[in-house]
């Protein structure tokens, strides 16, 4: 460890630096329990064997600037983030959510109520409720507005991990990518871009429930911070396979394509909050796509790549006019300067 090393923003950006921090500080020395998917697995949640299935637990803290953005707000994000982490483990029927709110002195009640309404709306969509919670108030300037933490608990008989892909499996994305990250980035920096950039934040549990019935899903992950690039790198390296992605097959809204071009930011590095990446056995692809496309959240699902035996852990990207390796993001994407 370097002397005087400090945590920087990149340690929260979902890339390699964040994984290094978690491994070094939180996992090192943590006790593993046989049969339990725990910290060391760094999956979307923990899974504890119980009866003929698993109890899945996950937790997530939410801070977002601005708190309200086109397509959603911090409340909707707090519910969907946790519901989706459960769903990515195959646990699509949340038994309970908890919510802890840490609020800054002076925070307007009106805004808090608006956030609460939005959380309830998202819970209704996901078919779950917040059953217990906690509130703390901190002094002015001691915290930025409001921080929400949610924890989710669910039971599943079909545990899905992020490490089960085999050579020959296909990669499916459930819809157009990078909507959330660009919507927030543009709202945050008040960039004057035309077009409707809206966050995709949505609960995916119903969609996932439908596809799991069809079978053949070997791995799942929601490409949040760090985007598709970070998620696919993690899935590939944990599964011990390489991946070849076809860039032109990756669905992208026109508005996002244009914003990415203008800002010089790769959409593959940008966060999603209502999308999943799936590893799917080749013989199950049609059935899974069918199921996805019958649901509003999966209508634009597409096959975007294939797993290979060669170059394990590395992602080759066909650009249509050439081919390169996909880099893992290692910081917050910022608009290119010149």
């Amino acid at each position: 460890m370097k002397r005087n090393e400090r945590v920087s923003m990149k340690h929260g950006a979902g890339g390699r630096a964040m994984r290094d921090l978690i491994e070094r500080v939180f996992i090192a020395g943590a006790k593993a329990i046989p049969g339990v998917v725990g910290l060391a697995e760094m999956d979307d949640g923990a899974a504890i064997p119980m009866g003929d299935g698993f109890l899945v637990v996950t937790t997530d803290s939410h801070v977002v600037v601005p708190r309200f953005f086109p397509g959603g707000d911090i409340g909707r994000l707090a519910i969907c983030g946790t519901v989706n982490d459960l769903a990515m483990m195959g646990a699509t029927e949340p038994l309970a959510l908890t919510c802890a709110a840490i609020i800054e002195e002076g925070f307007p009640f009106e805004e808090l109520e608006r956030i609460q309404r939005s959380m309830r709306q998202a819970c209704d969509e996901a078919g779950c409720s917040v059953l217990t919670g906690d509130t703390k108030v901190m002094g002015k300037g001691e915290i930025d507005g409001v921080v929400l933490n949610t924890t989710g608990v669910a039971f599943t008989r079909t545990l899905v991990r992020d490490n089960g892909m085999k050579a020959g499996d296909r990669i499916i994305v459930t819809g157009p990518i990078a909507d959330h990250g660009f919507a927030v980035l543009v709202a945050r920096n008040d960039l004057k871009l035309e077009g409707d950039l809206r966050s995709d934040v949505a609960p995916l549990n119903e969609l996932v429930r439908m596809i799991l019935k069809r079978g053949g899903v070997t791995a799942m992950k929601d490409p949040t911070r760090g985007g598709v690039s970070s998620a696919i790198h993690e899935m590939a390296s944990k599964s011990g396979v390489g991946v070849v992605l076809d860039e032109q097959a990756i669905p992208l809204r026109d508005e996002v394509r244009a914003a990415a071009e203008v800002l010089g930011i790769d959409p593959l590095h940008v966060a999603n909050e209502g999308k999943a990446l799936l590893g799917v056995r080749a013989d199950a692809v049609d059935a899974v796509l069918d199921a996805l496309r019958s649901h509003p959240l999966g209508r634009e699902a597409a096959v975007i790549g294939t797993c290979t035996q060669s170059h394990p852990g590395r992602i080759r990207l066909h650009t249509g006019v050439g081919e390169r390796l996909l880099a893992e993001p290692d910081g917050e994407p910022l608009p290119r300067i010149c």
């Binding site: 990207l317 390169r324 390796l325 290119r336």
Partner: peptide, 23 residues
């Protein structure tokens, strides 16, 4: 610099010449 060779190569996977990577 975002226009520097090393920065650009790093951004796009570090080994932009896949001809050297064929297996």
């Amino acid at each position: 610099s975002s226009e520097g060779t090393c920065r650009i190569w790093h951004q796009y996977g570090g080994v932009p010449d896949l001809r050297e990577e064929q297996r």
